[in-house]
Design a protein around this nucleic acid. Structure first.
Lengths: 228, 228
DNA sequence: ATAACTTCCTGTCACTGTGACAGTAAGCCT
DNA sequence: AGGCTTACTGTCACAGTGACAGGAAGTTAT
């Protein structure tokens, strides 16, 4: 079982990778994962267990969904290993990795992990790519973006999520209009305010609606955020 | 491994089901499937093999994609069985099931299979429901609908696909405008014509474009086709 | 042949939602 | 008080859709 754990750090999309301590691919970076422990363990429960062990993440305030299964006969030199991949979205975390048992766990920018120069073990580059694609698509027509944020957030923070995952800049004014027009996407969280430099921003919570209608539109063929 | 094989028959969406000959769930309807035969067989190859055995469908002119894995500990009374589910879309077929080795294979309307009165084996009702949902979503932003048709088709036939899968009626004039405006979705297939009652219709082939921009819009909260 | 009928295809108009802008409001700092 | 930063509100043109009517091209009936 492999896990694609995504989060946001300083306006960039990061993935949790682990340096392998054993062969094959010793020393290379790989997605966290493992095998099923008990005979009667649920797959989702196993994913949550791995998530707690490797990243110290509890099952609350965390999005977890099936990504796919990867079963090419030659993906593992030891023989046929069919792996179930899960996609997890974690909110912003204060510290990279807290007390875990994994040796070399670290957050790596997705752009860097997929650049090609960082060789990932097995077919993990493909799995990571599929996971990021899934996240990009789900931002369009679901409220998944709120999973990247804490319990409350500002609209600017939410926009930051979209820009980091999609890798492009968005117009703040149109973004405000859009997220406010979709009823039930985000709801005001009291008159509370948080500040950081300029005028205080209103806080919001995730709303009851899970699907966005009409969907968020991802501009096509636009310049990458990195080049801006 | 389980297969959700969908097709269109007389403007309705059908799924291929098989009456189980052995316990557990003997006599109940189930999705076709099987276990991996050779140690080094690819998963997709295994799906194609099952597809040929159970439904007589070759790998050409057939859409096949991963659907998900189902691993609840109690899904099979014999113990933990993790199953990989595939979604297959087959074009209109002249006869239900040709010379296959499966005993009681038959096409069943999806509405009937999901009605609840037809108890499916294991968690196959859930898998089928997920497969139909996947197909519904992919019709919105991909050219998957052409997989339900033969090598050439009319626009009315394509609309039939959308109406059957979505379970709702669409306006033919707006549908014409929409599919023609998306460049590369469908391309004219010669000046050929086919007829059936009224004015002959132009024939089209699937175009090079796999994704639809802007996407096909599924009307929300509309009356079901069956009630019209 | 002509009319009726079927199905295929083309237009038109109002409205929703977006892209692309400028401008105001509300806090901090000097 | 002025300047700076960030948060928020409006306005206009345009693309795309929903909801209609009407013409085009065949078959069948009279």
């Amino acid at each position: 079982m492999d896990l694609v754990i995504l989060t946001l750090r300083s306006s960039r999309l990061y993935v949790l990778l682990i340096e392998r301590g054993i062969e094959p691919f010793q020393g290379a970076l790989a997605l966290p994962g493992g095998f099923l422990s008990h005979e009667k363990e649920d797959l989702v429960a196993a994913a949550h267990r791995e998530l707690a062990e490797e990243a110290g993440l509890g099952p609350d305030q965390l999005h977890l969904e099936q990504l796919g299964f990867y079963g090419a006969p030659d993906r593992d030199p030891r023989g046929r290993v069919v792996s179930a991949a899960y996609l997890a979205i974690a909110p912003r975390l204060p510290e990279p990795v807290a007390g875990t048992d994994a040796s070399g766990a670290c957050w790596i920018p997705v752009t860097q992990a997929l650049a090609g120069d960082a060789q990932l073990a097995f077919d993990h580059e493909q799995i990571l790519s599929d996971g990021v694609d899934r996240a990009r698509e789900k931002l369009e027509r679901s409220a998944l973006a709120t999973a990247f944020c804490g319990p409350t957030f500002t609209i600017a923070e939410l926009q930051d999520v979209y820009e980091a995952v999609w890798g492009m800049r968005l117009d703040p004014r149109n973004f405000y209009r859009k997220v406010q027009s979709v009823e039930g996407f985000i709801v005001p969280a009291g008159p509370t305010r948080k500040t950081e430099g300029g005028r205080p921003a209103r806080l919001f919570r995730p709303g009851p609606r899970a699907t966005l209608h009409p969907p968020m539109i991802r501009p096509r063929g636009q310049a990458d955020k990195e080049t801006a």
